[in-house]
C-alpha cells in the first residue's frame, strides 16, 4: 500500500517546516550523547596528567587534514542546499556527490590513522585514553557513514526533483557531524 503523508505533516504552527524542526530535535539529542562522552573524557583527561604524553602519539597532520576535509564538505553541502533552493538539479547533485566524496576521503584518512596506531601497538584496550580515542572517533565515523548513506538515498530523489527540501535537512545534520569533529580534533589531537 502506498504511503500517504498525513495532513499533520504539512502543518507548521511554529513557522519552521516539520522536517527541519525534527532535525533540530535530533541534533539536540545528539548533543547529549556526544556531550556525555566528551564530558566523561574531560573528567578523566584533567585527572590524568600523563594523558598529554599518550595523546602525543596521535597524528596531528592527519587530524588537521581530516578537519580540512570535513570543513570543505560542509561548504559543498551548503552549496548543494543553495542550488536546491533555486531548483538547479545538476548543481545540487554535483555538490551532494562531492560531499559524499569528502566523507570517503575522511574515512580513508581515519582508516590510515587507525592502521598506523594499531601497528604501533595502541589498541582499544591499551589504556583508558586509547579507549576514549577509539570510542569517540568510531562513534563519529558511524555518523559520517550514516550521513553519506542518507545523502546517497536523497540523491535518488533529487534526480527526479522530488523532496528537494531534504537536501537542507541532511545538510544540517552533516554540519553537526562537522561540529563534533571540530571539538574532537583539539581534544584528541592538539592538546598534548
Amino acid at each position: 500500500m502506498a504511503f500517504h503523508a498525513p495532513i499533520a505533516t504539512g502543518r507548521s504552527n511554529t513557522g519552521i517546516p516539520t522536517g527541519r524542526l525534527a532535525v533540530w530535535w535530533l541534533l539536540a539529542s545528539e548533543v547529549f550523547i556526544f556531550g556525555g562522552l566528551i564530558a566523561s573524557y574531560l573528567l578523566h583527561r584533567l585527572n590524568n596528567e600523563n594523558w598529554g604524553e599518550i595523546a602525543a602519539n596521535t597524528s596531528t597532520p592527519a587530524g588537521a587534514l581530516n578537519t580540512f576535509v570535513l570543513l570543505t564538505s560542509s561548504l559543498f553541502i551548503v552549496l548543494a542546499h543553495a542550488a536546491s533552493e533555486r531548483k538547479d538539479i545538476a548543481r545540487t547533485l554535483k555538490f551532494i556527490w562531492l560531499t559524499i566524496g569528502c566523507g570517503g576521503i575522511f574515512l580513508v584518512v581515519k582508516a590510515y590513522e587507525y592502521t598506523t596506531e594499531i601497528s604501533h601497538g595502541f589498541v582499544l584496550t591499551s589504556n583508558v585514553f586509547w579507549s576514549f580515542y577509539y570510542t569517540a572517533t568510531a562513534l563519529h565515523a558511524c555518523h559520517v557513514i550514516a550521513g553519506m548513506f542518507i545523502m546517497w538515498m536523497i540523491s535518488h530523489d533529487v534526480k527526479i526533483s522530488k523532496n528537494l527540501h531534504r537536501v537542507e535537512l541532511i545538510g544540517i545534520y552533516w554540519h553537526f557531524v562537522d561540529l563534533v569533529w571540530i571539538f574532537l580534533f583539539p581534544l584528541l589531537y592538539i592538546a598534548k
Binding site: 548533543v31 556525555g36 562513534l139
Partner: peptide, 21 residues
C-alpha cells in the same frame, strides 16, 4: 539519556572488548 547512551556503549565495550572505562 544521552550521557547514559554513551555510558552504555562504554559499559558494553568493557564487557565485550575488555576496555577499562
Amino acid at each position: 539519556v544521552g550521557p547514559l547512551i554513551a555510558g552504555a556503549v562504554m559499559l558494553f565495550l568493557d564487557q565485550r572488548i575488555g576496555t577499562s572505562f
